[in-house]
């Protein structure tokens, strides 16, 4: 798929995606990224530093949310800029040994802005968990064909 700026308009929806998260996913992300902060895998440690429990890596949430944009763009290399603020932690409950998710992240995206000169589209993501916006100003800039 290649996207042309002439076929796009600001406000257009690019789709949505639901991401189920378990404690195992956080351990995998810790290993893959090298971020072994125990607040992402140890309940006792997380509560000892005044967190409500084990929370997802902000970078797990950011990294999984952008897949909606990557798949829409058709080429991961088309994402030339990606930023966010982390506003609320994603609390992941311990569902080890069951088929249940420990948290559910809902991602949806709209085209926020088109830049004809740079031939790019800015996709604005809305990322929610437990009824709260967990990312703010989550914006990915996509280079168009």
């Amino acid at each position: 798929m290649s996207l042309s700026i002439h076929e796009l308009s600001a406000g257009q929806e690019i789709g949505s995606r639901t991401i189920e998260v378990t404690r195992t996913d956080l351990v995998k992300y810790a290993g893959a990224s090298g971020d072994f902060n125990p607040i992402h895998w140890n309940e006792a440690f997380a509560t000892s530093v005044e967190l409500p429990g084990v929370i997802a890596h902000g970078m797990f949430t950011m990294g999984s949310a952008v897949q909606l944009v990557t798949d829409w763009a058709g080429d991961p290399a088309a994402v030339v800029d990606f930023q966010t603020r982390f506003t609320k932690p994603v609390l992941v409950t311990d569902t080890t040994g069951t088929a249940d998710a420990g948290a559910t992240i809902e991602v949806s995206g709209i085209i926020g802005k088109l830049d004809a000169e740079a031939n790019t589209a800015r996709v604005d993501l809305t990322v929610m968990a437990a009824g709260q916006k967990v990312l703010m100003k989550a914006q990915a800039v996509v280079k168009l064909a």
């Binding site: 996913d25 992300y29 893959a32 990557t70």
Partner: peptide, 17 residues
């Protein structure tokens, strides 16, 4: 393999990874 591992860890499915 690191690209594949990281892609799986962020639940990416795009074949280019």
């Amino acid at each position: 393999e690191k690209i594949r591992e990281f892609a799986r860890a962020v639940k990416a499915t795009h074949p280019a990874h």
